[in-house]
Simulated scan of single mutants.
Amino acid sequence: MKPQLNTRELTIYLPGLTLAVKVAASMEELITDPADEDNIPLWADIWPAARGMARHIWECLDFSGQSVLELGAGAGLPGVVCGLKGARVTFSDYKPGALELAAMNARSSGVKDFSCFLADWRDFRLDRRFDWIIGSDILYDPKFHPYLSRIFEQNLKPGGQLLIAHPGRPATFNFIEEWHKKTGRPVTEKIIPVTIEDPYFPYYHVHIHQF
């Protein structure tokens, strides 16, 4: 029998919307091998980039009748907000616990039109194209860039849009610049201030790039 994922609740405040979102109760208890970066449970919490993206989606975008693939979904906050703005959402992650959280949060928030896809970016076999692909802080490590570039090429519809959020990481800026040169697609950038409950690093500037 699969062990139950212990959770705690975070309250996410967006203009005119309050969401109760489940995350893992403790990231530390999920770490089985600290030396294995593939098993560091980054999916188990909601990071600043996801909060900034969720706010941008809620305030600025409409997904009525459109399909959205969220990569590295984790607890699924941005995908949930896409669903609330009318999207058919596919949450994707490489850890079952992440998709368990995303599905739990989608259902509790009233999102009905969603699915989950379990896959590693390095072996991503999804035979579908989407109107949008979104990702929060997924381009933090250059070694994943070739795999993500391939996913963008294979799973984004012609004329589809890419939405990337990050807290100012140089590796992500480098990818954005290279992708812009490679594809010739225009890109817009917006910066959203995010505050989290952290005594040491509470303030972030989240960069939103849209192609």
Rank of each mutant, 00 (worst) to 15 (best):
G52C: 01
R55M: 13
R51E: 10
I57C: 06
A35V: 15
D38W: 03
I40L: 13
Q66P: 06
W47T: 10
I46C: 15
A50Q: 03
I57K: 00
V68M: 08
F63I: 01
L42T: 15
P48R: 11
I57L: 10
A54C: 06
A75E: 00
A50F: 03
E37F: 10
A73M: 07
C60W: 14
I46W: 01
A49P: 12
W47L: 04
I40H: 02
P41Q: 11
G65C: 09
L42H: 14
I40K: 03
D45G: 11
S67W: 07
L77F: 07
E37P: 14
A54W: 01
P34D: 05
D62R: 15
D38N: 12
L42P: 02
L77P: 05
R51K: 09
Q66K: 11
S64G: 13
S67E: 09
D36G: 08
A49N: 15
G74K: 07
E70F: 03
G72A: 05
W43Q: 07
V68A: 04
G72E: 02
A73G: 10
W47P: 02
I40E: 03
S64M: 15
G52I: 00
E59G: 01
A49Y: 15
D45A: 14
V68D: 05
I46M: 14
E59C: 09
A44M: 08
E70N: 02
D45F: 09
R51G: 01
E37N: 11
P34C: 11
L61D: 04
H56E: 12
L71H: 00
E37W: 13
Q66V: 06
V68H: 07
A44T: 11
W58T: 08
M53F: 01
E37H: 12
V68R: 09
W58Y: 11
V68P: 00
